[in-house]
Every structure is written in structure tokens, then in C-alpha cells.
């Protein structure tokens, strides 16, 4: 599947929720099931510090594709992170650099990307692109 197709899949999944609480329930569930990155990867160099919560992002390249693992103190943030990992992990640097993801807005979570939320998500997306640039 292309990045666009995975995005569409996520948008479809979220379209069944009419209530915010259901959306959050789902994100919490996703957050809980996101594989926690190894403690060794939870180091200063992988830390993205926000005022609200911390995010850790670890990247590895294998056969020309980037694989991400990530974690956060905050479970809803972690849920959104798991969606980002689903979209970006296993992609070539070129795919990542050429992407312009829209699903976060489409499922109504754009507030989480505002700098005032300072939960590390915006920096995380930027960081994913840096990794892609570094490996391309």
C-alpha cells in the first residue's frame, strides 16, 4: 500500500466515530498496543521534549527502508504516534520525503499538531523527515 492508501484506511477507520470519546477510546487502545521501544532506544538522543509530554523516536534502516519505533508518556499522543508509525514505517526515504500527510487533519486531530500543544508530535513528524533526508 502507498502512504496515501494507508492514510485513507485510517480515515475510514475513524469515520465510524461520531463521538469524541469514542475516538479517544480508540486512540488509547492503539497507544496501549504500540510496541514500546526498548529502554536502550529511550535515550537522550531519541527524545523529543514537549511541554506537555515527551516523545521518543528511534529509526533504523534496513534494505533501503526506514523502520520507526516510538513511545510517549501520554497515551493519546502515543495513539497518534502509532498511526504515524503505521503510515511511515517500512517506507523508502524517497517516499517519506515526497509525502504530504493529511490524515491527522482529516480525522480531526489537527489541534495536536499546533505548536501550543507542545506534545512533541509536530517535532516527531519533522524528525521523521530529517531521518529520511539523512538516509536518502
Amino acid at each position: 500500500m502507498t502512504i496515501k492508501e494507508v492514510e485513507q484506511e485510517i480515515v475510514d477507520e475513524f469515520s465510524i466515530f461520531t463521538e469524541w470519546m469514542d475516538k479517544y477510546e480508540y486512540l488509547i487502545e492503539l497507544g496501549k498496543s504500540l510496541p514500546i521501544i526498548g529502554e536502550n532506544a529511550k535515550q537522550e538522543g531519541n527524545l523529543i521534549k514537549g511541554c506537555q509530554s515527551r516523545v521518543w523516536l528511534n529509526a533504523q534502516i534496513s534494505e533501503g527502508k526506514l523502520f520507526f519505533t516510538a513511545d510517549s508518556d501520554a497515551i493519546i499522543t502515543k495513539g497518534i504516534i502509532s498511526l504515524l508509525v503505521r503510515v511511515y514505517s517500512g517506507r523508502t526515504p524517497k517516499e517519506i520525503l515526497e509525502s504530504d500527510i493529511k490524515f491527522i487533519e482529516k480525522i480531526g486531530l489537527q489541534d495536536n499538531l499546533s505548536p501550543t500543544r507542545a506534545n512533541g508530535l509536530l517535532s516527531m513528524i519533522r524528525q521523521i523527515k530529517y531521518y529520511a533526508a539523512a538516509y536518502s
Binding site: 470519546m21 479517544y24 506537555q52 501520554a74 493519546i76 499522543t77
Partner: peptide, 13 residues
Amino acid sequence: GAYPSDIAMIMDK
């Protein structure tokens, strides 16, 4: 077992 920003986000809604 619950992170403050998560609680605040839910209660905001």
C-alpha cells in the same frame, strides 16, 4: 496510570 495531558484532552471534550 494516567498522564495529565491525556486527562486534560479528554476533559476538554
